[in-house]
């Protein structure tokens, strides 16, 4: 379980306050208006922001003092997920070994990850030769490889609007791929989306943020959406 315990952070004029738990091995959608604090929440978890108060725990252990790369996390940003001058294989491998010196097991992991996202025979391609969807698949493959790394597994996947630049068909493909990978590899996924409706049949749980605070956290297996959430999603 991922727990944000009485986290407080002030950025400029905005005060953020998060006290929430996310169940492991589930897909959690984070929704809210622009500037509500969705990205800040993910940045806090990833270690890109440091809270002034509170603690962040993963399975009961505090990860607050860890550097971003030491945390059990992989990020998928909206853009700039790949290094433009590295080929696809190296872009995935760099997630396991920053100096690109891989052990046999790590090489195997990279190849498995490439197969899992369906990008076989494209190892030598550079990002400029990939479509938007393919580039996101490469980033997903890196997350997958990192999640399965025996020495330092990172089972938490943070997705910051990863579909926003994709066409509707590719979005669907990516959604299906994430669901498949999450189930097969038991990942915990937190995903920010500007399309709440899309999240209803994708996520296990939905969290609404407003004005830097958690407004509501709702398990989607429950029959009825709370009124606040329904109003926000316009259902």
């Amino acid at each position: 379980m991922l727990k944000l315990d009485k986290i407080k952070l002030s950025l400029g004029q905005t005060n953020f306050s998060f006290n929430i738990s996310f169940k492991a091995q589930k897909i959690h959608a984070i929704i809210g208006r622009s500037g509500s604090g969705k990205s800040t929440l993910l940045n806090l978890i990833a270690g890109f922001e440091t809270p002034q108060q509170g603690d962040i725990k993963w399975n009961g252990t505090s990860i607050l003092s860890q550097q971003p790369h030491q945390r059990p996390i992989t990020n998928l940003f909206q853009e700039h997920n790949l290094f433009a001058h590295l080929n696809m294989f190296d872009n995935i491998a760099i997630g396991l070994s920053p100096n690109l010196k891989l052990s046999t097991e790590q090489t195997q992991l990279v190849n498995t990850a490439i197969n899992s996202v369906g990008l076989n025979n494209m190892q030598t391609k550079k990002p400029k030769d990939l479509s938007g969807g393919e580039a996101q698949r490469v980033a997903l493959a890196r997350a997958l490889a990192r999640a399965q790394d025996q020495q330092n597994p990172r089972p938490l996947l943070l997705l910051d609007e990863p579909f926003s630049a994709l066409d509707p068909e590719t979005r669907l493909e990516m959604r299906d791929l994430i669901t498949k990978i999450q189930q097969n590899f038991k990942l915990t996924v937190l995903i920010i989306s500007h399309n709440p409706t899309e999240m209803l049949d994708f996520a296990d749980e939905i969290t609404l943020i407003a004005d830097g605070k958690i407004t509501i956290q709702h398990e989607l297996s429950q029959a009825k959406l709370p009124k606040t959430l329904a109003e926000f999603i316009h259902i």
């Binding site: 990833a46 971003p68 996390i73 990020n75 997920n81 760099i94 920053p98 690109l100």
Partner: peptide, 19 residues
């Protein structure tokens, strides 16, 4: 383009300079 990604993947020092 690279700061956040490098930080999250722990690419630093000589490895960052070289790669």
């Amino acid at each position: 383009r690279h700061q956040k990604l490098s930080l999250s993947l722990g690419i630093k020092g000589l490895a960052r300079a070289r790669i």
